[in-house]
Simulated assay, not measured.
Amino acid sequence: MVYIPPPSKSAFIQLGDYVPKVGIYTNPGVVAEKKDDGTIVIDTNKDSIKQYHRHSITTGLTPSEKEIFNDIMDDVMSMGENSERIIELQKRIDSLKSTPKNKKVSDFLRNEQAQLIRWSKDLPRVYNTMPEKLR
């Protein structure tokens, strides 16, 4: 029998992941660098945090997925009314869902849409879904 050690926590940490705090007296930050020895560098500069997490905490997405998410949210949040934002987000989610590699981004966008729905008490007009999901 061969022992395979479990993956270290650093194996799951990605650049740009949010870190609420490192020690007792530290500010929140983001992972700025992963070193070969397994250690990571945390940047607590607010601009660095905002670079990756402009609209919400996107820990779990790769840096390129974070960029896609933030670009979409920048476009959506530049719209005036929440009802317009909800509809536009639904369109973007539907287009992203057609590509399996974009599932995580579309899940994060769905969470943002749910937040907008709660704030505005408005719903999307059009939904794309599978027929078997209908009741």
Rank of each mutant, 00 (worst) to 15 (best):
I68C: 04
K104G: 05
K66S: 00
R54L: 13
G60Y: 00
K101C: 10
S95P: 03
K121T: 03
I42S: 05
S78A: 12
S120G: 10
E67A: 13
L123T: 06
I87A: 07
R85Y: 03
M79R: 11
S83A: 10
M77R: 07
I87D: 13
S64Q: 13
N82Y: 11
F69Y: 14
V41F: 01
Q51A: 12
V126G: 06
K121I: 00
E81L: 13
G80V: 10
E84W: 14
Q90N: 12
K97S: 09
R118F: 04
D107W: 05
S120P: 00
E81P: 07
E84K: 13
E88S: 15
R110T: 07
I72P: 08
S56V: 12
R118H: 09
H55D: 09
I42W: 07
S78C: 09
I49P: 12
S120A: 12
V105Y: 04
T44P: 02
M73Y: 00
V41A: 07
E84M: 08
P63W: 09
V126Y: 11
Q115A: 10
D74H: 11
P63S: 06
T62E: 06
T129P: 05
E132A: 09
R125A: 07
K101D: 13
P63H: 06
K91C: 04
N45G: 07
Q113P: 03
I72D: 02
S64Y: 01
E84S: 01
K46T: 14
D122T: 08
F69K: 05
H55T: 01
D71N: 15
L61C: 09
M77L: 12
K104T: 03
R125T: 12
G60W: 11
D71W: 15
T99Q: 15
D94F: 05
D75N: 14
S106Y: 01
N45T: 11
K91L: 08
S56C: 14
M130E: 12
S106N: 03
V126E: 14
M79H: 13
V41H: 06
E112L: 00
T58L: 14
L123A: 02
D74V: 01
E132R: 11
E112D: 02
L123R: 04
I86D: 02
H53F: 15
S106R: 01
L89P: 07
I42N: 07
W119Q: 15
N102H: 12
G80K: 12
E67Q: 14
E65R: 03
K50C: 10
A114N: 10
N128T: 14
Q90R: 11
E132P: 03
M130A: 11
S106P: 03
G60K: 01
L61K: 05
I57L: 12
K91R: 11
E84G: 03
L89H: 08
K66W: 02
N45R: 15
S48D: 08
A114E: 05
S120W: 04
E81T: 14
V76A: 10
K97Y: 08
N45E: 13
Y127I: 15
F108P: 02
I42D: 08
F69P: 04
I57M: 13
Q90L: 04
N128K: 08
E84F: 14
S48L: 00
T99V: 11
D122C: 01
I117K: 05
L116E: 01
S56I: 09
E112S: 03
N102A: 02
S64C: 02
E81S: 15
